[in-house]
Design a protein around this nucleic acid. Structure first.
Length: 546
RNA sequence: GGCAUUGUAGCUCAGUUGGUUAGAGCAUACGGUUCAUACCCGUAGGGUCGGUGGUUCGAAUCCACCCAAUGCCA
């Protein structure tokens, strides 16, 4: 499987990771948040590994639906999308999604790039005019796309069947690139992930037709105009997919940022697109074809994740079961969204569908974060305060050397390598499994060694070694979990008396955090009570209230 | 209707190229401990591996068909 021409992946290899851009016809909900949180966790992980990393997310703002929604609210399309894209930004701030750029398809540089790209495909001879038979809705006075239709093929706003109407549009010669795409997929086994999606795409490629890439201005006016043709507007995919190039600073010339993150110094493909399984076709076929036509390198990987259901039901406006991250944090009086991040990342294997229920959420958060981890921190810092006044005591090297269990509590290897491997594979469930094994070991060790007995019998050397080992295990656990639950990690470091700013900084590497911020003798810990109140306990909300 | 994926204890998932009594965590029951957020530790019960048929000395693991769910396409 290793291709001889592939360069080794080193910590200095840049990483460009993107989410899909969300269509702004309604505010963000848990489904949108799922993808952003997962991508954020990966971006944070790459930064921790030392890779120069650029994380892009944003909003898709053109099209009929937006135009009509804006009109129905008496707003200009731009005013309408300004408001909605803002709500996405707020949601991601709330969820701790630390993107490097938030792109909007209405951004000026995006308009410019799409025109450049259009002209390049045109010059290549891949864009031509032909008649297009669209589904025209009388009520909307416009052509509808799949996403404007209900499952029964009716117009969402008017609940009527659209009629077939012909108009002259521009088409893209997708069929020209069929063989090249098949060859690329076969030559790059990890291009499409998870593995099983590859066969799906290869099957899609069997019957490939050219795609319509414009609409008449009469049917859709809210979009990027076709260069040199006043009557047509660029439609959906060329506009939307190009965001990945705009987002990394491509303007038609090889800018420094583009060369670093899209091409990489070695000229290897580099971008990683995290998308929903519903838009795999567009990313695995349309997008590579467009890039080939424009003579640009392809992305390195496309990862199609599953969907989050709510009580086993699809999240949709028509079902009336839409909940937002804000709804959840408010309902459970959470201090931050980390419990939501943790649940979404671990409730299923990334790639498969997941399900959210209030019951499962509470069980998972209480068991792992509150009981096992939070309580471990609480009981540890409490004992340190009681037995040593809260200051890190001196540890006898001899005592430490004589206890395998205490050494294991503080061990970085091999757990660090296991955690890294799991993150690399997008396997957040396994990351948690590995890390919580260390938490369990710490809790078990407390029960086995009975520090309260050591204190009463004045075995202070052993007690000191035990306490420091416990706190050290917590220090490491916080570092390993920080890509998934950044705020909780900061909380742990803060109580340990460590530099909270350091672990809060996404750019700090694993190496720097693990070896640069030690629990040195004399360091004062800072007990602050429960890290995370159990959901639905009497303590729930106490932190939010103060 | 076509293609693809999924279907393993109440729940979420592991199960390497088919091989001895199918594993883990959570949940449940019982016991222990007290530093701690009624927490932590230990023990136990619980599965004919979606169904049927087949290949094989032997299948959760391979093949066929069927059922259910999900995505794309028609």
């Amino acid at each position: 499987m290793p291709n001889a021409h592939h360069h080794p992946d080193t910590p200095t290899t840049p990483r460009y990771i993107t989410t899909a851009i969300d269509y702004v016809n309604a505010p963000p909900h848990l489904g949108h948040a799922y993808e952003k949180i997962a991508t954020d966790a990966m971006a944070r992980f790459y930064k921790r590994m030392g890779h120069p990393t650029f994380f892009l997310t944003g909003t898709d703002e053109h099209g009929i639906k937006v135009e009509k929604n804006a009109l129905s609210k008496g707003l200009a399309p731009k005013a309408f999308v300004d408001e909605l894209s803002q709500s996405f930004k707020q949601a991601w701030a709330h969820c701790g999604v630390a993107y490097d750029r938030f792109i909007r398809t209405t951004d000026e540089d995006h308009y410019a790039l799409v025109a450049v790209l259009w002209n390049r495909l045109l010059a290549k001879g891949d864009i031509y005019k032909a008649s297009y038979t669209g589904r025209y809705c009388q009520g909307c006075e416009a052509f509808l796309t799949d996403r404007d239709l209900t499952e029964d093929g009716l117009c969402i706003t008017h609940q009527t069947a659209p009629e077939a109407v012909e108009e002259e549009n521009y088409f893209f010669r997708l069929s020209n690139y069929k063989e090249a795409i098949i060859a690329h997929i076969n030559a790059n086994p990890t291009f499409i992930q998870p593995d099983f999606r590859k066969q799906e795409v290869l099957n899609m490629l069997e019957n490939l037709e050219d795609i319509s890439v414009s609409r008449s201005k009469q049917s859709v006016s809210w979009g990027i105009p076709v260069p040199n043709d006043e009557t047509q507007v660029i439609y959906v995919w060329i506009d939307a997919l190009s965001n990945y190039l705009t987002g990394i600073g491509y303007d038609g010339t090889e800018t420094a940022q583009f060369n670093q993150f899209w091409k990489t110094p070695a000229g290897e493909p580099n971008a990683i697109h995290i998308i929903g399984k519903d838009i795999l076709r567009f990313h695995a076929i349309y997008w590579p074809a467009m890039l080939m036509s424009a003579e640009l390198p392809l992305p390195k990987q496309i990862f199609a994740h599953g969907f989050i259901t709510l009580n086993e039901a699809k999240i949709s406006k028509s079902l009336g079961n839409v909940i937002s991250p804000f709804d959840l944090t408010a309902h459970y009086e959470l201090a931050n969204a980390d419990p939501i991040r943790y649940y979404l990342l671990t409730c299923t294997q990334f790639g498969n569908d997941g399900n959210f229920t209030a019951e499962a959420f509470k069980l998972s958060v209480n068991a792992d974060l509150a009981n096992n981890l939070g309580n471990l921190l609480n009981r540890s810092v409490s004992m340190l305060k009681k037995y040593f006044g809260g200051a890190i005591p001196a540890v006898s090297a001899d005592v430490l050397a004589s206890s395998a269990i205490l050494q294991e509590l503080q061990a970085v290897t091999p757990l660090h390598e296991q955690v890294v491997t799991a993150y690399e594979a997008f396997n957040f469930q396994q990351v948690a499994e590995f890390v919580f094994a260390r938490v369990d070991l710490a809790n078990r060790t407390i029960n086995d060694m009975e520090p309260w007995t050591l204190y009463k019998t004045e075995q202070l050397d052993l007690l000191a070694a035990l306490m420091v080992s416990l706190l050290e295990s917590l220090r490491l656990v916080a570092v390993w979990l920080s890509p998934m639950v950044p705020k909780l990690s900061v909380g742990i470091w803060s109580q340990l008396g460590l530099d909270a700013e350091a672990i809060a900084n996404p750019s700090a590497s694993f190496d720097a955090l693990i070896s640069g911020y030690r629990l040195v003798e004399g360091l004062m810990t800072n007990p602050q009570g429960p890290l995370l109140p159990r959901l639905d306990s009497e303590l729930a909300g106490a932190e939010a209230k103060k």
